[in-house]
């Protein structure tokens, strides 16, 4: 029995490792290319490891656009959007999961319906709106339209639904308000779901490109993905530098994810309430 268990573990590791290698191959290629001297980027057969670590790519990439400012903006916009989204989503998801109200199904289906339109459809009308109310080149236009998330509501609704109704009945007997119940009981119990929602929003916000570009003209208002556009032109791509800039762009989320994933695994104490 124990032998079988050990064997199973080994097989698991081997399979996982193989999958990781496949998945990480493009990523590895990105990082290793970011260190290559220019003549080595395209050689055949490919160089797995650069002959010398060409750190200058990073320096050049960093100076190709105002990345200091872009990083600050990306952080600010992503953090604010995420906070805003988590708050609006918790309320909305709770209403859909645990409250009985007029028009619930129609509303939920309509929200899902909104998701089915391509985002590109919204660009021009939203730009017209933004310029009418003077929101172009502001943080508001980069944040506020994105603090509501249908995806997030849908996800959290699934989470909240699994919380037994008896808890709310008991809380009511203790004279607990709905608001208090939501924040003191439901939210802590749904920490993994909330962190998942927050993480996805953060990544989405971090990588948003066209919206930022359309809504802003001042370099001081723009974010990292706009910076990544400077490495491409009609005549070619500065490959090594694009890869260097992309690696830098990924790092912060990578670190956040590494810590967040422990949260959404460890944060579960669900079995206790059943």
């Amino acid at each position: 029995m124990n032998l079988r268990k050990a064997l199973f573990k080994i097989v698991t590791y081997v399979v996982l490792l193989a999958l990781v290698v496949i998945v990480l191959l493009p990523f590895y290629w990105m990082v290793t290319t970011s260190f290559k001297p220019p003549g080595e980027v395209n050689v055949v057969p490919p160089k797995w490891v650069p002959s010398e670590f060409h750190w200058q790519n990073y320096l050049k990439a960093w100076n190709a656009a105002p990345f200091n400012r872009y990083f600050v903006n990306s952080f600010f916009v992503s953090v604010m959007t995420t906070i805003g989204e988590v708050v609006t989503t918790i309320f909305a998801a709770y209403a859909f999961a645990k409250m009985d109200f007029f028009g619930k199904r129609v509303l939920f289906l309509s929200l899902l319906g909104l998701m089915m339109f391509p985002g590109q459809l919204r660009l021009i009308p939203n730009f017209m709106l933004a310029s009418k109310i003077g929101w172009t080149d502001t943080y508001q236009i980069l944040i506020i339209p994105w603090i509501a998330s249908i995806f997030g509501i849908f996800l959290l609704r699934q989470y909240f639904k699994t919380i037994p109704d008896e808890l709310w009945d008991a809380a009511q007997l203790d004279g607990c308000s709905r608001f208090r119940f939501l924040w003191k009981v439901v939210v802590p119990l749904s920490k993994p779901g909330i962190i998942t929602v927050a993480l996805f929003k953060f990544v989405g916000s971090w990588n948003a490109f066209l919206w930022v570009l359309i809504m802003t003209n001042q370099p001081g208002m723009r974010t990292i993905p706009v910076g990544l556009a400077v490495f491409r032109s009609e005549a070619g791509t500065h490959f090594a530098e694009l890869m260097a800039a992309s690696t830098m762009a990924v790092m912060p989320i990578l670190i956040i994810f590494f810590f967040a994933q422990k949260q959404f695994i460890q944060g579960v104490a669900r079995s206790g309430i059943k």
């Binding site: 001297p37 032109s233 005549a235």
Partner: peptide
Amino acid sequence: SGPFGSGKVAMYIGSSAGAPYVASASEGN
């Protein structure tokens, strides 16, 4: 410009704006 720089391709017709990319890819090759 990439395959040209690595020696995979001996000639190609392209925009003169691509010259800097050709130069960088051919460097040392």
